[in-house]
Computed example of a mutant assay.
Amino acid sequence: MSDPLTIVVDIEGTTGATGFVVDRLYPYSRERFAAWIDTHAGDPEVTRAVAQVRDALGEPDAGTDRVVRALNDWLDRDEKATPLKTLQGGIWAAGFASGELTSHFFPDVIPVLRTWHAAGHPMYVYSSGSVSAQLAWFGNSPEGDLLPLFEGHFDTENAGPKRVAASYEKIAGAIGAAPDRIVFLSDLAAELDAARAAGWRTIGVRRPGEPHYDRGVGNHPEVATFDQADRMLQQ
């Protein structure tokens, strides 16, 4: 008997609306970058992120104002820069903990995640958002703490870029699953291509109204909801 399929999910555009992240979470972090950096100067994660920004700028002595300008520039271009995601993750985690923020999920997602967990499918998250942001996101859903549903979390720092096959190979090795027994759900064709190149199964989640809808999901199996993905996995 085969091992149960391992399921890896993306966040933006797949489990939750991109608009919520862009319109609610991005401005929330933008307003708090400077204060967060200055008040968490002794935090190793913040120190590392600031150093990474300075390295990217080629300005080892850049002050907080310069670092914040760089962060906001990346934010304006929606770049998946690791230090940006690290700092956003800390800020968002504090916002979720305080009750100022609650994460967003499409209505079809949480019931299916619970179904997959109950059926014995190991589940993981792989997102460009930092692990700390993922923990805050899934720990503060409209239906409470979803973290017990997941075995682990991967981001661009502990796994690598999402459009590179080697990142998916690294994740497969870390979780100890055969590549052909892993299913990745994402709304981005380039990410699905990379996962398939690493031997994974793929499902493209194409939701009307999402930014990447018109681009499609290439030649990957396509669904509009997690209910459809569930039926696909049972075939």
Rank of each mutant, 00 (worst) to 15 (best):
V205C: 02
A194F: 06
G209Q: 06
A172I: 00
S127H: 03
A133H: 04
D38L: 13
A174C: 01
A229F: 05
N140R: 12
I171R: 00
R114P: 03
G173C: 08
G90W: 09
W92V: 05
A118K: 12
A197N: 13
L84F: 02
A194Q: 10
W36Q: 14
R207Y: 10
T86N: 12
V125P: 12
A133S: 13
G89Y: 10
G152T: 09
R77Q: 15
L5M: 13
G204N: 06
E79H: 14
L149P: 15
S132D: 10
T156W: 04
R181F: 00
G16H: 09
D230F: 11
A166N: 13
L57F: 05
L149A: 06
G19V: 09
L87H: 07
F184E: 13
D155P: 10
W74F: 12
A197T: 07
V8D: 11
L101R: 03
V217P: 03
L5C: 01
R66F: 11
W36I: 10
I91A: 12
A189M: 04
G42N: 00
G216H: 10
P111H: 09
L233A: 08
S127A: 06
E45A: 11
P60Q: 02
L71T: 02
L101C: 08
Y26R: 08
D61M: 09
E45R: 09
L192I: 06
S98F: 11
G204C: 11
R207N: 14
A81H: 13
S141V: 09
Q134P: 04
T64H: 08
L146T: 08
R77S: 12
E12L: 04
R215V: 00
A34Y: 04
G129Y: 01
D155M: 13
M232C: 05
H40R: 12
A133F: 02
L5N: 00
A118C: 05
L147T: 15
R24A: 15
L84K: 09
P142E: 01
G152R: 05
M232Q: 11
A41F: 00
I182K: 00
W200H: 05
Y26C: 04
M123H: 07
L84C: 09
D10S: 08
D73V: 13
L185V: 01
D180H: 01
A229G: 03
A136R: 14
D227I: 09
S2G: 03
T202C: 08
F138T: 02
V67Q: 12
H153G: 14
A194D: 04
D55R: 01
V22D: 14
A197F: 11
R114V: 04
W74T: 03
G199Y: 05
L75K: 02
S167H: 07
T86S: 13
P83V: 03
S2Q: 08
P148E: 07
T115H: 05
R30P: 10
G120L: 10
A81C: 00
D65L: 01
Q235G: 15
P161S: 11
G13K: 12
L75Q: 14
G58C: 08
I11V: 08
A17N: 07
P161Y: 00
G129Q: 07
W137C: 06
D55C: 01
I175Y: 02
L188T: 13
V109C: 06
I110F: 03
L188N: 15
D73T: 15
